[in-house]
Nucleic acid binder design. Structure first.
Ligand SMILES: [Mn+2]
Ligand SMILES: [Mn+2]
Ligand SMILES: [Zn+2]
Ligand SMILES: [Zn+2]
Lengths: 141, 141
DNA sequence: TAGACTAATGCAATAAAGTCGCAAATAACA
DNA sequence: TGTTATTTGCGACTTTATTGCATTAGTCTA
């Protein structure tokens, strides 16, 4: 099962609470959007926390490995992350403005049982992303 | 609508048939697996067609832009492509051995109408990928 | 609160994926 | 065969990400 993205949860597991880790955890626990390494770097500098790129990549990898974060692939050559605490959901990515909205309705689990029966493939997780035009961009045409 | 991934279709649209293009089209029209630029390069060299990396990237971009190929994101920092001719499907990616199988059963369209009604988001396409353990790897434990 | 221990960090080098400008090659068509 | 636009190779460059190593700094115990 996934862990809580909280400082006390990290502490309980014996992980150190450093300045960068504290801020990164805060950023993800407050964000409803998936964030890339570059976006995290920008958000860090906005709160005057400077961290080396390597440190940020290592921290994201750490939080991913320890299942505090999950990966999202929305665009080529850009990996994003979001808190594992978030309720299972999928994304509506606008091709025009790039905005990202969430869809919490997921009807994939039915298919998962089917796949195991028919193919013998044991599904652990899935990623479902939608692409199109958001309501705001639809109006502007 | 998507175009046929055939030399005559390319010719009809006024695109030139070059050695690299011919081979790349052949590779994708015969492959049931999504392929990355590196994989395409390897497959080209197997049939003694040497092509510069830049040329391969440009060709993939060309075929994508002209909708002969579609993009697939299965892993971080690796974009794969497959023929647009293939029937709409999704992938079963094995976390253990990396094998990729296809699922043609798709029940997402119902949800798409829902999303338009409730969110006003016009869905054009979606990507659904499954991760877990394939039947062969399940047996080996 | 002072050490001891280990995880985390910065820095610089390196790697991998992808892009771009430009001159040369070549496919298409007359 | 000659003309023209597209494609290609090459090399330089960009972006994203990783790694080794010396230093810094959390955490724990005495
Ligand atoms: Mn999300
Ligand atoms: Mn496929
Ligand atoms: Zn939009
Ligand atoms: Zn497998």
């Amino acid at each position: 099962m996934n862990l809580d993205l909280t400082l006390s949860s990290l502490q309980d597991k014996g992980h150190r609470i450093t300045k960068v880790r504290k801020e990164v955890v805060k950023i993800f626990s407050q964000s409803s959007q998936p964030l890339s390494a570059n976006q995290v770097e920008k958000m860090l500098s906005q709160v005057n926390v400077t961290a080396n790129k390597a440190t940020i990549y290592r921290e994201l990898q750490f939080l991913l490995t320890n299942r505090y974060l999950t990966e999202v692939y929305l665009h080529p050559n850009e990996v994003s992350y979001e808190s594992s605490e978030l309720k299972h959901h999928h994304h509506l990515v606008c091709d025009i403005c790039g905005s990202i909205d969430n869809v919490t309705n997921c009807l994939v689990s039915k298919l998962e049982e089917d796949v195991l029966k028919k193919k013998g493939f044991q599904i652990e997780r899935h990623m479902l992303e939608f692409y199109g035009t958001c309501s705001r961009c639809l109006k502007q045409t």
